[in-house]
Design a protein around this nucleic acid. Sequence first.
DNA 1: ACAAAAGTGTTTCATATACACCCATGT
DNA 2: ACATGGGTGTATATGAAACACTTTTGT
Lengths: 219, 219
Amino acid sequence: METKNPKYRGQGIHVMASIFTVDHGVVKILLVKRNMEPLDGMWSLPGGALYNDEDLDDGMDRELLEKTGLIIPNLRQCGVFGKAHRAFCMRMVAISYFGVISQFKVEHFNSTLKSSNARWFSIHQIPPLAYDHEEIVKDALEKLKEGIFESDILTSLFSEKFTLPEIQRVYESILGTKYDRRNFRKKMLSLDLIEDTFETARFEGRKPAKLYRFRKENK
Amino acid sequence: METKNPKYRGQGIHVMASIFTVDHGVVKILLVKRNMEPLDGMWSLPGGALYNDEDLDDGMDRELLEKTGLIIPNLRQCGVFGKAHRAFCMRMVAISYFGVISQFKVEHFNSTLKSSNARWFSIHQIPPLAYDHEEIVKDALEKLKEGIFESDILTSLFSEKFTLPEIQRVYESILGTKYDRRNFRKKMLSLDLIEDTFETARFEGRKPAKLYRFRKENK
DNA sequence: ACAAAAGTGTTTCATATACACCCATGT
DNA sequence: ACATGGGTGTATATGAAACACTTTTGT
């Protein structure tokens, strides 16, 4: 292949992650503040240029770690953004990923996060984003909604033990809908992903709720 | 962005199309014979390098036209292939598309096709393909199956008039399943995409079949 | 009359939705 | 005792799959 042809000289590939969590009923996304030109100081999705010697998925993991300090399993590819002039300085194509992380892990990583330029934003209060990242976020949220009942996303979203009303609230936050308590329980149990721990969780002023966990042997 | 950093110098973006048709019950894919090194003479998917000044989708349309002479509407993006060493001479990421074309149009374009290096192959008799194109084809076929009942794919797959048994056979070929005649008819009509023409098609030895067409005002 | 393929309608099942009552807790 | 939220079972609607008989044509 000709690398000198100016028609395709100087192209680059970016990987971008939309990482979501649910914090007390609020869906949040992880953004980082740019610390170099162009658009210095603007918020953007964590990500960056793919290296020549790494697979696409590995590049995403590396960029996410470098920019935010987080290691998030089960990232999922969800889109390609390839308008000619989306990045005005160079011809970049962005491959977009999304992933989720439980609030439990978010808190555990909080110290790491503070030392980087990353912050969680409610998806209803997203600041102006660099390049076309607003469009990318919107698309990632759609893809998250589509995949939310699949096991890898589900298991990433919760810590070891959880109650059904708890995860129902998370689902309702993400999907923006309300579920009937009984039907939600039925649906979740029919997925065969979770099992009773025979423990209960107590919250003040409420009847204790059963604790569930993900089944180890899945299939 | 630094363009001199050797970590990401010399990357490129490829677009690739898996174009399918159904010819007398056989699902076929359009392949082109490479006419330059590396892998000169091998069969591959039509596609090539994206130009710097064109949108991704436009690049795909252009490459398909250049390599095969075909203009195919409703190409759909379906995957990204980004292993580090998938193209051994350079770091290329491939964005894969799929599309379908009716047998009627295929015949109309036959003369164009003959002058290019393109040929239709049954998906059960695909020759060894360049790079990772076999994997890309496999993935594209999956995506085709998933999207086969959506209106844009469906309308691309048939000419103006068609009978229900006819399109049932096409579906059965692509999906590799059998449908009950009555249930298939019910499903297809319930999509609200087609309407009766009040004409019939005659084939020897068979009862004449009703001809349908796509509804113009869709929605 | 028979074989081959086209046309039609009803029953059955599975899945999703709607819905009402009792229970445990803190005030 | 009451307000709040958790736990359970049944009835209904909706969509998918199963299924049998009649019609048209060529031989």
